[in-house]
């Protein structure tokens, strides 16, 4: 640990470090269905296997559940955010996931969920999936937005033609350094619950938490990333460089993708506040963040600055 300034709140040390995030492309879609259960089934399926762009193609998650009064068609729905490293990859993932997980799910419909001007980049939503209708598909323009109605066995699948794609931020993160597994999980779960209440962000890993934080590169040439050994308690006495001390028995990471820089910062701040509020008695010793020395991305989130403790 290389702390230049010591910030300790309720017995928990906040490292003088920063999280490093990178630019992504993102979109929001709204999935609706006959009831909330089926909307959730579709949203869960389409955001499955979308934890990391390292091997999933995109990072996706349920942003929030929508009431019937919040959706275009007056049915219960779910807002889903998808992030990818390029607009092209995002479009590819979107088409596959909508085609295999939403089109297939009983009673669903799917709409663009971002407001954007006409000049904004757009990704196909139903533009290509409509051909599943084998010629029976119908286009409908309503208030300047084109929808496709594809005949399916439960009636018709209504899908908006395209969805806006915007610049976004991926890879914001917090590292929770705790006494043991129970303490680390307790802190992570509390932070995740609070962070997920915020708009415009997703925490793409299972339960919002990742235990296999990675560093760039590997001793094996074919691997782009490998275990973040500096934060592995098993390697504290072994690794050439460790960020841990012997009393740290478990580290959990929360990764945040957001539509804007400010959204990621807000989520990180809320997450830290929840952990700090619980205090050292809950078993957390330190809060840190993953960074790559500024080599990975242009967005740097300094933990002290987020807590208003920056001297800068």
């Amino acid at each position: 640990m290389s702390a230049a300034t010591i910030v300790e709140i309720n017995g928990i040390t906040v490292d003088d470090t920063f999280a490093e995030a990178f630019p992504m492309k993102a979109t929001r879609v709204v999935v609706t269905a006959h009831d909330a259960t089926w909307a959730n089934h579709a949203a869960v399926a389409m955001t499955g296997f979308a934890t990391s762009v390292i091997a999933c193609g995109c990072e996706a998650g349920i942003e929030r559940v929508l009431g019937a009064d919040e959706t275009p068609d007056g049915r219960p729905g779910v807002a889903v955010l998808l992030f990818s490293m390029s607009g092209k990859e995002l479009a590819k993932q979107l088409e596959r996931r909508v085609g295999q997980c939403v089109l297939t799910c009983p009673t669903t419909a799917i709409y663009a969920g971002l407001d954007a001007d006409a000049a904004a980049d757009r990704a196909a939503l139903g533009k290509n999936l409509r051909f599943f209708g084998d010629g029976w598909q119908i286009s409908k323009m309503i208030d300047g937005r084109r929808y496709w109605r594809v005949p399916v066995m439960d009636g018709e699948f209504v899908v908006e033609e395209t969805t806006p794609v915007v610049k976004a931020v991926g890879g914001g993160n917090l590292l929770i350094l705790a006494r043991d597994t129970e303490a680390a999980l307790g802190a992570a779960e509390a932070a995740v619950a609070a962070m997920r209440a915020l708009p415009n962000v997703i925490l793409p890993f299972p339960g919002g938490v990742v235990r296999s934080g990675s560093k760039i590169g590997s001793k094996y040439a074919s691997l782009p990333a490998s275990s973040n050994d500096a934060f592995c308690p098993a390697l504290t006495p072994l690794a050439k460089r460790t960020e841990l001390t012997p009393e740290i028995g478990c580290v959990m990471e929360i990764v945040i993708d957001g539509l804007t820089d400010g959204d990621v910062a807000a989520a990180m701040r809320v997450g830290m506040e929840v952990i700090l509020e619980r205090g050292a008695a809950a078993g957390v010793r330190r809060i840190s963040a993953g960074n790559y020395g500024g080599k990975l991305g242009p967005y740097l989130y300094r933990l002290h600055a987020l807590l208003g403790r920056s001297e800068a």
């Binding site: 609706t32 275009p72 068609d73 007056g74 049915r75 419909a109 409908k140 309503i142 208030d143 929808y147 109605r149 439960d154 009636g155 018709e156 209504v158």
Partner: peptide, 14 residues
Amino acid sequence: GHDVQVIWTLLARS
């Protein structure tokens, strides 16, 4: 005979 409630709601609201 199918359920057209989704597109109907979009049209009717417009």
